[in-house]
Write a protein that binds this DNA or RNA. Structure first.
Lengths: 234, 234
DNA sequence: GTTTTAATGTGTATTTTTAACACATTATTG
DNA sequence: CAATAATGTGTTAAAAATACACATTAAAAC
């Protein structure tokens, strides 16, 4: 690797000093189950936070893009490809990690829990209700809160919650997701009206099955309406 | 610094490899002058981008918070303290910097150009109209675009543009800022109505001076209405 | 099989917000 | 003192968001 001393405007520090910072990625992987918003967490095995929940993360490799690192973590941990992933913010307090200077970039992701099988016992991986998480290892609770806030803003204008649902879903399920994420109750009639107006849904002319009540109609996400915009942001 | 090998889940890389990434901060410093939105740029002196404009940035020191690094850059470059600063995004493509693996976190800042004197000749620092910037060194045009987009969203709901103006300003000046940032024309009556409704302004009962037309009333930002929320995000 | 239950499915009226639009007023300039 | 070029103001129309009640359907209970 080339030297980059041209960076150091002040001269007190050598390049070696600047390369004593490590960069990691942490993924807030949201899922939806039992009418609750959940997040994938793992038992922390660092002594300072032993036994506490932490987010899924890893160091960024020198030869991989930042975005790629988050995809890698997601793929390795959930086996899922092609999931929704969005960068949220970078957390860089000096003492945020007991093992040294580690700056982390947070991503949030939306997956359908049913789409994959976790090796739960192996890794102490666990889908935890977001509402019930009071504290986490490191600054991960802060990261989680920030990502949840971003998610709440995001779903107001952008068709992303479909990633939390199976391909076919009822309007009730869709509304449940919104209520779980926003942590509030919504009016069913206005909710339905809004979604039909937005033209985000395609009526499948099928009905729910195995529900203990009148089955609702099934819909799928109108993906064709949203050409995949590939951001070249990072 | 302690070892952090516990991070490496995969074992192919040693800690030394992970510490071959450097982290920098780049500031998109916006200003407002001559009815135009401007950005503070500096002539690039790296051979690959010689002579092109670049943003103001520097490597993050091992012992400084990420946010502090951006404040430091701003202070060093503009002499300004206590300015508006917001983290936007981190850019981490492997080859974004010719000198090596440098990941950068972008901040945008809003300053009142008149509040400080730049040593323009010294540093080849320059306030450049945002609209006229077609290309920049590195991925800085991309960073600028991303920050401008964020700024546009931000000003819709949050009282931040006051940072671009002097303490006392007329409604016309305020509207000009919005028009410059959003790159569109706004209806004067609706604009005024909206601002009076929002209760963001305090009427100073003073008039503009030295304007070649009927002077407008002067206002100041209703700072008391917005308790300083100190985010603990990074 | 009839009743009960618990959900789905639908329309209208009200309020709020946003957008469109025109003329009188005032200080400066010539 | 007239012309100019800006400031300052109110109403109307359209659109969006909100509040709200009853009929329908399939399963479950009896």
């Amino acid at each position: 690797m080339k030297q980059i001393s041209r960076f150091s405007h002040f001269g007190e520090l050598s390049d070696k000093d600047y390369f004593r910072i490590a960069l990691s990625v942490d993924c807030v992987i949201f899922g939806f189950e039992d009418d609750e918003l959940k997040v994938l967490v793992i038992k922390c095995n660092i002594k300072e936070y032993k036994g506490m929940w932490s987010l899924l993360g890893d160091l960024v490799r020198p030869d991989e893009d930042l975005d790629s690192a988050s995809y890698r973590i997601l793929k390795d941990r959930t086996g899922l490809d092609d999931v929704y992933l969005e960068q949220v913010q970078t957390f860089g307090k000096v003492n945020r990690h007991p093992a040294g200077r580690v700056i982390t970039t947070a991503y949030f992701s939306l997956v359908n829990i049913k789409d994959h099988q976790l090796k739960l016992s192996d890794n102490e991986l666990h889908w935890h209700p977001v509402k019930e998480i009071a504290e986490m290892a490191f600054d991960h609770k802060n990261i989680l809160d920030t990502c949840l806030e971003r998610l709440r803003e995001k779903i107001q204008d952008h068709p992303v919650v479909f990633n939390l649902l199976p391909k076919k879903f009822s309007l009730r399920e869709l509304q449940s997701v919104y209520e779980a994420v926003l942590n509030c109750e919504l009016d069913r009639r206005n909710f339905r009206k809004k979604f039909f107006m937005m033209d985000w849904l395609i009526d499948l002319n099928e009905l729910e099955e195995d529900v203990p009540h009148r089955p609702g109609k099934l819909y799928k996400f109108n993906a064709a309406k949203f050409a995949k915009k590939t951001k070249k942001v990072s």
